[in-house]
Design a protein around this nucleic acid. Sequence first.
DNA 1: ATTTGTTTATGATTCG
DNA 2: CGAATCATAAACAAAT
Length: 338
Amino acid sequence: GNQQQQQQQQQQQTNSSNILQTRYQNEQINDKTSNSLTSVITNVQQQSMINPSTTLTTSANYRRNFNACAKPPYSYISLITMAIQLSTNRMCTLSEIYQFIMDSFPYYRQNQQRWQNSIRHSLSFNDCFVKVPRSPERPGKGSYWALHQEATNMFENGCYLRRQKRFKCNKRLEHDRDSNNNNRRHGINNSLDKSTTSTGSGQRSPISSASDKSCDEQLLLMQQQQQRSIYMQQQQQSLESPDSRNLQVSSSTTTNVDVKQLKQEQCDFNQMSFDSHTFPNYSPFAINTLIMHQGFGDNPAALNAYYASQLPQTAFVPSSSSDYYHHSTMYASQPTTL
DNA sequence: ATTTGTTTATGATTCG
DNA sequence: CGAATCATAAACAAAT
Ligand SMILES: [Mg+2]
């Protein structure tokens, strides 16, 4: 099981520069309207389909929904960061990012136009992603995408969904990117900015110094910065099942779980101090990543990818018409009891 | 033509 | 409530 997946991933990595990529069906699924209850139930009925060999059917699934193709508990920013950090040179083309996400999470093999648009938006909008120009030796469609140098620890303490603060490139205070974003809606705009230079799409961010470097230069810098270890091979052996902790909290009948108590237990187990600030009140991902950190040391990206490859069905239930996670619903014990 | 990238707009949700 | 963060749609330009 593990070895096969290793081989698959290695193949995908070496082939990433070639044309050979796994194609997926890209089914168009229209469950946007009836998202909350019905889709949850039907998904549960399909649960045993995808990954029957999973070992954690029984114990600690009280706050997980084993939906085969449910949305993974990661933001687009998290997904992109995983793709970049797990790539050999720590930079990805757009299509490679697509491919990584689809390979890792079955949910994203469907409705590809929708989320891929969001991916593009996220790459362009967020300052933590910078473009690295192609070298002449490797011509092709778009640029490479890399993480901004100073964008480290974006998901500290396991906030992979909604972070307290996003990465902002404030090299020069100048025209803050968010000033553009702040006076939107509510008509409070004092026409403070309004300029926008309005050059449209050809405009380059004046702040991104990284994208001005050549491809090789950037590549070297990244290799120096953090040499990428072979966690995939190393850690898989030392890793016990992520859910082998047998966390028993109010298991029966109660639909509500005491979140803070749950976190407290997790922090105790990991000998961490409970910090209500870095652990947002209702973010379950702190818990998940605490669990995962046990086996994977200090590389959450690698560990998430492994987690995803082993448990593609694990995710939480989106609550409303938008695929945005309502934190309280994530703690529901079982989707059937909802 | 299709892919890639930028930008604007707006709904949803959480936090102080 | 207001600001911040994320999701999604869409218009549109540029590159291949
Ligand atoms: Mg960007």
